[in-house]
């Protein structure tokens, strides 16, 4: 697999959230605002990259029997460090994400990539894989957050969590017309379901088109063969 393909697979064809449906708990809980989703995606990607690289580095040292405890220990270490750094340097993000930073430890994407990819591949490939998966997850949750914030509050805002950015809000939907349910957990389920439905629809259409193309090709080849037979 080329480096480009390895990187892109996590974003499109093997997107951990939208294709494999993994890591849905924080995806529903931390997508009230785009800023929170970016923060979650960033922390998740850092943990995923660090743990994948370390697991790949130690893959020949870690024997079969201690694989799971060793991976959990590695992931928990990075999550604890990331949690401390967030609490110290981006306290607003720490307050917003709350328990969901600690819950990265049990995020099945991180353990899954360590087990399925990093333990079998070199450091560079594991780094690219983790980067692609992290970016894919971040883009997916930011997508959900975009619709939730826009529909739930009527606009998009920045600078509330990342306080080093000047605070700004763009009101798109007039006040009074926002649909507050999108700010609630139910809204997260609705947005997630709609995005999944759209992706499945596109995927099914592609597959149907491919099947129809194959059928057409087979029919054409059959017709060509029968023509040849008639000519003989």
């Amino acid at each position: 697999m080329t480096t480009k393909k390895n990187f892109l697979k996590g974003i499109i064809e093997e997107n951990p959230l939208l294709v494999s449906i993994l890591g849905t708990c924080p995806a529903l809980a931390t997508t009230k605002t785009i800023e929170a989703a970016i923060g979650m995606g960033l922390l998740f990607t850092i943990v995923l990259i660090c743990s994948s690289v370390l697991v790949s580095l130690l893959r020949k040292l870690i024997s079969e029997e201690i694989r799971t405890p060793a991976y959990i220990l590695i992931i928990a270490t990075f999550v604890t460090i990331v949690k401390m750094l967030t609490n110290a340097f981006i306290p607003d993000l720490y307050s917003t994400l709350g328990v969901f930073i600690s819950l990265i430890v049990v995020n099945c994407i991180v353990l899954g990539r360590a087990e399925a990819y990093a333990s079998k591949h070199g450091v560079f490939d594991s780094l690219i894989d983790a980067l692609g998966m992290g970016l894919g997850y971040t883009l997916a949750i930011v997508g959900i957050a975009f619709f939730r914030e826009l529909l739930g509050t009527g606009g998009l805002s920045i600078g509330k969590i990342f306080t080093f950015i000047p605070e700004a809000k763009l009101q798109i939907i007039p006040k009074g017309y926002e649909i507050s349910v999108f700010q609630n957990p139910a809204g997260a389920f609705i947005v997630f379901a709609i995005i999944l439905a759209v992706i499945t629809f596109i995927k099914n259409r592609k597959e149907e088109y491919k099947k129809a193309q194959d059928k057409l090709k087979k029919a054409q080849a059959k017709a060509a063969l029968s023509k040849e037979g008639e000519a003989k």
């Binding site: 029997e65 220990l73 928990a76 604890t80 401390m84 750094l85 609490n87 110290a88 340097f89």
Partner: peptide, 28 residues
């Protein structure tokens, strides 16, 4: 060897977390 590996990973993790704590505790 297996126990030693897991023990070493644990010790390295403890050191890393301890270092991060030293760096951030005052600020927290």
């Amino acid at each position: 060897l297996t126990s030693l590996t897991l023990g070493l990973i644990g010790a390295a993790s403890a050191l890393l977390v301890g270092g991060a704590n030293l760096l951030t505790s005052e600020r927290i």
